[in-house]
Amino acid sequence: MKLRGIGHSRSGDKGTIANISLIAFDERDYPRLARHVTAARVKAQFADLVGGDVIRYELPAIGALNFVLHGMLGGGVTRTLALDAHGKSLSSALLEMEIPDDDC
């Protein structure tokens, strides 16, 4: 299944760094997100768009993860040629990620 089935997301930028949140609709699904959506998988998902490290922060109290993507290609919001200069649509790409259907 796609992450979109159990999680929601919002993304934004600061300079050449983007962040993408991933929040469980139901906090009981947080362990699934934490297990399957690793920093390495997110880096692989965005390999064409991100040059640097991906760091994952965990917020179990609200059932959420926060991914910080360093080195967005194109040089950041003010000079990039990208159509979505702010990386606002990255959230939708993260939610496309496939995870196993049921492993609760």
């Binding site: 997301s9 919002r10 600061k14 962040n19 949140s21 929040i23 917020l59 959420a64 926060n66 910080v68």
Partner: peptide, 8 residues
């Protein structure tokens, strides 16, 4: 969503 918006 807003709590984590543009937060590192």
């Amino acid at each position: 969503e807003q709590l984590l918006y543009e937060i590192h």
